[in-house]
C-alpha cells in the first residue's frame, strides 16, 4: 500500500520543495536540534559531511557489485512478506545504508544477501540476488559468504585469542592447517584495516572476550575482512557501542569504502547521513525511497520518508 503512495507523491515532489522553502521546516529543525548531541564532539566527522553533497552529485560510485532484484522474503505463513519485491543496486566503493523503523525488513534484507536468512526456519525467498553477474543461488554457500562477509549487531568474537579469531576463517578454508607464522601477515593486514593493530599487536594471544565492546566489534570487522570479501554487510554495527567507539567504527567504514562495497543497516539516521553514499528507506517491507544520502535527507520525495527522516515516527 505504501508503494502506490510513493508514486502518487512523485508529482508532489515540487510541493515538498515548496515546504522546504518555508524555512525552517519541522524536518530540518529537528535534524539541527539533534545534530550537536551526536556530532559536536567529533570534529573528525565534519569534513565528511560536506563532501557527501559532492558525492550525491555523482551518479554511481563504481561498477555494480551486487544487484537485488525483485527480492521478497516470507516468514512462515505470514500473508505479508517481510521484504516486498525490493530492487536495489550495490556499487563498488559505496556505502549503502538501509534505514527504516523496527520491523521494516532491513535486517531481513541484509541477511538474505549472504543467505544467512535460510537459517531462520520458515523463511522463503523470491526474486534474485546477483553478485558480479552471477546468481548467488548458483554459488557455493561457503564461497558466497566469504565474498559477502558480515558484521553483526552484537559484537560476537569467538572465545579464543585475538589471533585465532582473525585467523579462524583462514584456517577453516585451508585444507592443510597453516602455521601461525604463515598466517601472521594476513592477520596483521586484517587487523590493520580494522584499525585495531596498534592496540592489540603487543599481545595477540589475549582472549578476545577481554577486549572492550568497541574493540570487539573492530575485531569482528577484522575477522570479516580477513577473508578478503567484496561486499561487507553490517547489521547495526554500532548500536551496542558507546559514542566514541561508534565514531571510530564510522571512521573505519569511510576508510574501507574505497576497497569494497558496504551495506549497512542502521537505526541511527545521523549515522546513515554521516557514513552512507546512498540510502534506501524501507517501511513495512517495502522499499519506499532510494537515493543519494543528501538527496534523501534534504529533499525526500515520499511523504513517509519525509516523516521518518524528520523524526515524526520511527
Amino acid at each position: 500500500m505504501s508503494r502506490p503512495a510513493t508514486e502518487s507523491h512523485d508529482p508532489a515532489g515540487s510541493d515538498g520543495d515548496g515546504t522546504r522553502g518555508a524555512y525552517p521546516p519541522p524536518v530540518r529543525r529537528i535534524a539541527l536540534d539533534r545534530a550537536p548531541t551526536v556530532v559536536a564532539d567529533d570534529p573528525a566527522e565534519r569534513p565528511l559531511v560536506s563532501p557527501s553533497i559532492e558525492r550525491a552529485l555523482r551518479p554511481a560510485t563504481g561498477r555494480e557489485r551486487l544487484r537485488i532484484d525483485e527480492l521478497s522474503i516470507f516468514y512462515g505463513d505470514a500473508p505479508k512478506p517481510a521484504v516486498n519485491a525490493v530492487t536495489l543496486p550495490v556499487h563498488e566503493g559505496e556505502v549503502l545504508a538501509l534505514i527504516g523503523p523496527s520491523g521494516c525488513g532491513k535486517t531481513t534484507l541484509l541477511r538474505s544477501l549472504n543467505r544467512l536468512i535460510e537459517l531462520t526456519p520458515g523463511a522463503r525467498r523470491q526474486g534474485r540476488i546477483v553478485l558480479d553477474g552471477e546468481d548467488i543461488d548458483g554459488l557455493e554457500m561457503t564461497r558466497l559468504r566469504r565474498r559477502v562477509s558480515m558484521v553483526f549487531q552484537q559484537p560476537n568474537p569467538f572465545p579464543m585469542s585475538i589471533f585465532d579469531n582473525v585467523a579462524y576463517a583462514l584456517r577453516e578454508q585451508s585444507r592443510k592447517r597453516p602455521s601461525k607464522r604463515d598466517l601472521l601477515p594476513r592477520v596483521e593486514h586484517a587487523l590493520r584495516r580494522a584499525g585495531l593493530w596498534d592496540e592489540v599487536s603487543h599481545d595477540l594471544s589475549r582472549p578476545a572476550l577481554r577486549l572492550s565492546g568497541g574493540q570487539q566489534q573492530r575485531l569482528c570487522i577484522a575477522r570479516a575482512l580477513a577473508v578478503e570479501p567484496e561486499v561487507l554487510l553490517m547489521d547495526e554495527p554500532c548500536s551496542a557501542l558507546d559514542p566514541i567507539s561508534t565514531t571510530v567504527i564510522e571512521q573505519l567504514i569511510h576508510e574501507l569504502r574505497s576497497e569494497l562495497a558496504i551495506v549497512i543497516v542502521t537505526h541511527n539516521l545521523q549515522q546513515a547521513r554521516r557514513v552512507a553514499d546512498n540510502v534506501a528507506f524501507m517501511y513495512l517491507g517495502d522499499l519506499i525511497e532510494y537515493g543519494p544520502t543528501e538527496e534523501l535527507f534534504e529533499r525526500p520525495r515520499a511523504e513517509r520518508t519525509r516523516e521518518y527522516v524528520g523524526g515524526t515516527f520511527g
Partner: peptide, 22 residues
C-alpha cells in the same frame, strides 16, 4: 550464544565445522 554460530557461518564455514570448531 547464537551469535558465535552465526558468526562462524557468516564467515563461510559449513554448519558442521561451525558446530565443531566454535
Amino acid at each position: 550464544p547464537r551469535g558465535w554460530r552465526e558468526g562462524a557461518l557468516a564467515l563461510g564455514v559449513t554448519q558442521w565445522r561451525a558446530t565443531m570448531s566454535v
